[in-house]
Design a protein around this nucleic acid. Structure first.
Lengths: 165, 165
DNA sequence: TATTGTTATACTCTATAACTATA
DNA sequence: TATAGTTATAGAGTATAACAATA
């Protein structure tokens, strides 16, 4: 076992635990209740993504960011569109595509939701030293970036697992 | 907006992205294929948990660590038991309970799987400074711990979100 | 011919309800 | 009566396949 392996061996259990934490349905139910909104989780995920993007996105872009497949997004957009939470407009640059944007109503919903969840995070990290908080943000950003790159490569079949030149 | 909020506001998108990364089914398929095993994801999650615990666990303990409900675990244990990947023995301390343990076959399976996935992590973090790697492990451990505490409190209804005294 | 998106269908994963056995 | 686990059923979430329209 080389030291590099030792350094990352413990990562899998940590990330699995984080995954189970964030997948807790009960938690989401509490969040939407506190926020006073009524949406299922994938629908809210779409709203969060649109809000974070700060510009209208194509259906395909949303699917990529959710790491899901197109039809899944379409189905939720249909529901969200009927409720006037999002709107779809033609993409001026490509007549095949459509741009998805939050309506004012949708903006209010995602605002209330993120306020609640960010409040939880703030409370959970309240006792942390400032340095640790900023380190976490920086390392988490790099981790997701590097894992995305690695996983994309693995999924593409190049499997750069072994020698890692 | 107080500085504390600012420090954690960016956390939600990061964690959501991490969640979508770890939820990618395609990735798991690649892992089990590389490892040469044939198990679905929740079944493998059970094996990883048993392996990390380094001792037999009760059904309820497994469910808690997976953040799922009892019947879900039972169903997969039935399947794993038939294939002699796990075994259930009576808990000497409580005749109602049963202890779940990996068989030698199960140990080999989880070993192959974790080797593959840890290899991915090692590759993804290969260029990181040692200091960043150790910081990540430390902060991730504390983050999951603090989020677990926070989320448990929220789910219990105390909702220590607001003033956070 | 390749790409963007939609519709329809099937599968995976998890939860709720009802039940048995032991404490 | 409460707790540990199981069985059976229902629902949420996501993928695959087939199709329409534009590039």
């Amino acid at each position: 076992m080389d030291p590099l392996s030792d350094a990352t061996t413990g990562l899998l259990p940590h990330l699995l635990q984080l995954r189970t934490l964030l997948n807790r349905g009960q938690l989401y139910e509490q969040a939407v209740q506190d926020a006073g909104v009524a949406l299922d989780r994938p629908a809210m995920t779409i709203l969060v993504i649109l809000d974070a993007a700060e510009r209208p996105l194509r259906v395909g872009e949303i699917a990529t960011r959710m790491q899901v497949v197109g039809p899944h997004v379409t189905r939720h957009l249909n529901s969200l569109g009927k409720r006037a939470i999002i709107k779809r407009v033609p993409d001026p640059e490509d007549q095949r595509a459509r741009l998805v944007a939050l309506t004012p109503s949708g903006q209010r919903i995602v605002q209330r939701y993120t306020t609640v969840v960010n409040g939880w995070f703030t409370a959970a990290l309240a006792q942390w030293p400032d340095q640790d908080r900023s380190d976490l943000m920086r390392l988490l950003a790099r981790l997701t970036g590097d894992l995305t790159t690695q996983f994309d490569a693995v999924a593409a079949g190049s499997t750069p697992t072994e020698g890692e030149g």
